[in-house]
């Protein structure tokens, strides 16, 4: 049994890493907003979904204009990413302005319920538009990057099987990593990133430093949402078919990843996402093996979440989270 698990390991790692980076980038949006407002922005999954739809709309528009063959695919993806990121960034900023800011001083539960409401609104608005435009809310865009790449991992050691992936996997992985590195740099090395950390630590004192707290919160929503929207594009490129409800489960898992890493902690969200992705793919590949065929691959989420619960029992603040301590 162990032998078979090791054989499939390279493929599990490749798939898990790719899925994990998607979770990780979406998790960043949850963790940034939580860090600054202590709000769980449940609408973030729907921002991701909106990004997927915006990207696919651009792709379909390009394809109907016959441009897909004349422009290199990578350029098309970059255009999709940039447009979707900017639009979802403004979407997230707008949501904060109209739905969360008026509730800034309300008890925590109230903006949480509002966030759930916003996510229903976004699902239905996107569904309405998709049906209006295409007659169906399940949309399949033209495929890009479909070439299969084989890696002869068996030549490293005979205990491994060969592994393979679509070129789009590579694209997702590379872009997600670039996004994470860029965000890490922004938050840790730039003036606005430092201001963001300052606001999340102490809003009143940040205001005394001439920092416009509302502006920083808007920037946070813009950046977090833009990352979510861009990941939506990556998801659409990877899987081809999207519907208005893809944000729900993925958002839930990304949120879980953020909690696993320690909510409010940016590097924690990245780590949590990648761990969750690998766990899930490991379960998908090995679950029926481990349980003698009783539980199939479709129980992968149960396995991943069970591990997660275990981690949180022993480390409730998350892997990289710090126990909350007040110092006067």
């Amino acid at each position: 049994m162990l032998h078979e698990m090791i054989q499939s390991l390279p493929q599990v790692l490749i798939d898990g890493l790719t899925l994990g980076t998607v979770y990780a980038v979406v998790a960043l949006g949850y963790t940034m907003v939580y860090g600054i407002l202590q709000l769980i922005n449940f609408a973030h999954g729907e921002i991701f979904m909106s990004g997927a739809f915006i990207g696919t709309a651009i792709l379909i528009a390009f394809s109907s204009m016959g441009l897909l063959h004349s422009i290199p695919s990578i350029l098309v993806v970059i255009i999709m990413l940039v447009v979707a990121a900017v639009l979802t960034g403004f979407l997230g900023m707008g949501i904060e302005r109209v739905a969360y800011r008026p509730l800034r001083n309300a008890p925590r539960l109230i903006p949480l319920i509002t966030a759930i409401g916003i996510s229903f609104v976004l699902q239905d608005v996107v569904r309405f538009i998709a049906e209006l435009a295409k007659g169906n809310y399940i949309i399949t865009g033209p495929s890009l990057f479909t070439k299969q790449i084989h890696i002869p991992t068996s030549s490293i050691s005979s205990v491994f099987h060969d592994s393979s992936f679509k070129t789009s996997f590579l694209l997702v992985l590379i872009i997600a990593i670039i996004l994470m590195i860029a965000l890490d740099f922004f938050v840790n090395k730039t003036k606005y990133g430092t201001a963001m950390r300052a606001v999340s630590l102490d809003r009143d004192t940040a205001a005394l430093m001439s920092i416009n707290v509302n502006k920083i919160i808007s920037v946070t929503f813009f950046v977090g949402s833009a990352l979510g929207g861009a990941t939506g594009v990556l998801f659409a490129v990877q899987y081809g078919t999207i519907d208005p409800y893809i944000g729900f489960i993925l958002g839930l898992k990304a949120f879980t990843a953020a909690v696993l890493g320690g909510i409010g902690n940016i590097r924690g969200a990245m780590l949590g996402g990648i761990i969750l992705g690998i766990l899930e793919m490991f379960a998908a590949a090995n679950l029926s093996l481990l349980t003698g065929g009783v539980l199939g691959a479709e129980y992968k989420d149960v396995f991943a979440f069970a591990i997660l619960i275990l981690v949180l029992i022993f480390k409730p603040e998350g892997l990289l989270g710090k126990p909350v301590a007040e110092k006067v």
Binding site: A198, L201, D202, D204
Partner: peptide, 11 residues
Amino acid sequence: VPEGRRIFSNL
């Protein structure tokens, strides 16, 4: 300069 110093502890 606020009461309790309120420096940004993680910065």
